[in-house]
Design a protein around this nucleic acid. Structure first.
Lengths: 128, 128
DNA sequence: TGACGGCATAACCAAACGGTCATATAACAA
DNA sequence: TTGTTATATGACCGTTTGGTTATGCCGTCA
């Protein structure tokens, strides 16, 4: 993980750390929208506020603007969503793997215990 | 999506929007660690700085502290990672679905065009 | 007991964030 | 040209963030 990757993830996660922006992302998942469209669903926020939020999403690489007359349709890109998701999944998987090994270890302890003391209380395996 | 869910995601994504904290999470995926352990890998940051970062992760529900003598081992929880990941995947999937429908639409336009004007220039299918 | 180790907390600071209103710009419409 | 619509930008403001140093608290050990 280099600085560039760190920066991209900083911006991506940072952009998603705001309910208004997540709301915008959710809307854009259904198709592109103009800034005015986004103002309409933006929970009473002003147009400059929404434009700022779109700027944040754009800097994070989550959206881009095109041009259509005087409109600037905003469209969502899947790539950064995928990257953020990949980061989460990687460490979630690693954590679950760690748990699994811990379980194995506890089980091993248990069977050793068993062979020495056949009637000892069983250590319960983590469910989930 | 209610306020509570929004708040949880605010905190979770916000906590992950910092390279130091992601580094901590990555470390904890391999097993629990004391604050001092985290200071050691924390890129030259002071102990209070690391403690603050751990506090942020804890408020986000990503980690918890237990007690072991004078140590306070920090351990990572998979649940919030899963929730954040689920949010991302939901809208990423929806977006890809939207793209797929757009492709179908374009293809339909194209075949209609073809039947009316068999020799017209073909509309190029979105590559990306 | 006294001293040390591991961690938390307080006070402080600069910079970033998230909003406002007012204004500028750019494209279309009459 | 003059107006109107869609969006961007600037100036400003209070709050939050992310770091620092100094210090306090609690558990362990000689």
């Amino acid at each position: 993980m280099n600085r560039t990757a760190d920066l991209k993830l900083d911006l991506a996660f940072g952009a998603l750390a705001d309910a208004t922006r997540r709301h915008i992302v959710a809307r854009l998942a259904k198709g592109e929208a103009s800034v005015n469209d986004l103002v309409a669903i933006g929970g009473g926020l002003s147009q400059p506020a929404i434009t700022k939020h779109v700027n944040v999403l754009e800097r994070a690489g989550l959206v881009s603007r095109s041009r259509d007359g005087r409109r600037r349709p905003v469209r969502l890109h899947a790539e950064r969503l995928r990257e953020a998701s990949a980061w989460l999944d990687r460490y979630r998987a690693q954590l679950e793997e760690t748990y699994a090994r811990l379980d194995d270890y506890l089980e091993e302890l248990q069977s050793k215990e068993k062979s020495r003391e056949p009637k000892s209380v069983r250590i319960r395996r983590r469910s989930r």
